[in-house]
């Protein structure tokens, strides 16, 4: 096990708490507001890691941490999948992730680390295995509002249970992906012009990176979409980006569309196409 040392954790807690405490920019917040970092975990080998959960709300809150399944649709949306519908790869993924704690009560401004590691079985086939770790605030017990209603009115009290999920990816053995950009075009969407394209993917690995549309002589990318994932369950993903009028008018002439790894992952080129739209 190679979890980080305790002193580091304590120290991180201090740094985060200081950040949250000093943040005049943090708006008035509700019970259960949360911060999670990092937003994506890749585990290869037996080394574990940790994810920080911080209570950025104004009241003490209890959070539940769980593992869930998601599948990506061709339009890039993630849809929840019940455990009873899991396929073999998803079951294997659920079975190999160890994490703790599963429930955390935090005072406002307080972070805590959730440790996690993968324990792939010896005979596990090479491949990419993925679960999504969910962080959700558990609502406090409600006040009993059984006082007799004096009038004949009906009112409704709704408690949102809200949270986030982040992907936890286990790369076991040798996995690869090949990616290509196809059919870039400008289409009319519900709210105006959209840049549309398809990114095809082959192989056992997901792809993750940054999509940029650039034009010779223009310094900044005209369109930029970061954190664009294509998971192994789909062989092609459509991408649609709503364009501002400025972007739409700038997308003429010879353009280059690049899909690169995120800068912190090296920024390597995954796919590129030179094209003229419309």
């Amino acid at each position: 096990m190679a979890f980080r040392g305790k002193s580091k954790l304590k120290y991180l807690g201090w740094a985060l708490a200081a950040f949250a405490g000093s943040g005049a920019s943090i708006p008035a917040s509700a019970q259960g507001d949360l911060l999670v970092a990092p937003t994506r975990v890749i585990l290869d080998g037996s080394r574990g890691t940790e994810v920080i959960l911080s209570n950025i709300g104004s009241e003490e809150a209890t959070y539940r941490i769980g593992l869930e399944l998601r599948r990506m649709l061709e339009n890039g949306r993630l849809v929840p999948i019940e455990r009873t519908e899991a396929n073999a790869v998803e079951e294997a993924a659920l079975g190999m992730i160890r994490y703790a704690p599963r429930r955390i009560t935090l005072p406002p401004g307080q972070p805590q680390a959730v440790r996690l590691a993968a324990r792939p079985g010896a005979d596990l086939p090479d491949g990419e295995y993925r679960v999504h770790m969910s962080f959700k605030a558990i609502p406090k017990a409600r006040e009993v509002s059984s006082q007799p209603q004096t009038d004949q009115s009906v009112s409704i009290q709704l408690i949102p249970i809200y949270g986030v999920t982040i992907p936890i990816i286990v790369r076991h053995g040798r996995v690869e992906a090949q990616v290509a950009i196809t059919q870039p075009s400008i289409v009319q969407g519900e709210d105006g012009p959209e840049l549309a394209m398809s990114i095809s993917r082959a192989g056992d690995s997901s792809a993750y990176g940054e999509l940029r549309v650039t034009k010779a002589g223009v310094a900044d990318p005209i369109v930029q979409l970061t954190g664009l994932a294509i998971y192994p369950e789909i062989e092609a993903r459509t991408v649609r980006v709503r364009l501002t009028p400025e972007q739409a008018s700038a997308l003429n002439g010879q353009l280059r569309i690049e899909y690169r790894e995120m800068p912190e992952a090296g920024g390597g080129l995954l796919a590129a196409v030179d094209t003229v739209l419309n």
């Binding site: 969910s134 509002s145 009115s153 009906v154 249970i161 949270g163 999920t165 954190g227």
Partner: peptide
């Protein structure tokens, strides 16, 4: 959207609903 049939008793009706933001 809530749907009522007209027979509802006066008072406060409670429930919860889940909203999740999914990072990919």
């Amino acid at each position: 959207t809530i749907t009522v049939d007209g027979t509802e008793a006066p008072g406060v009706f409670q429930g919860d609903f889940e909203v999740t933001v999914e990072y990919s």
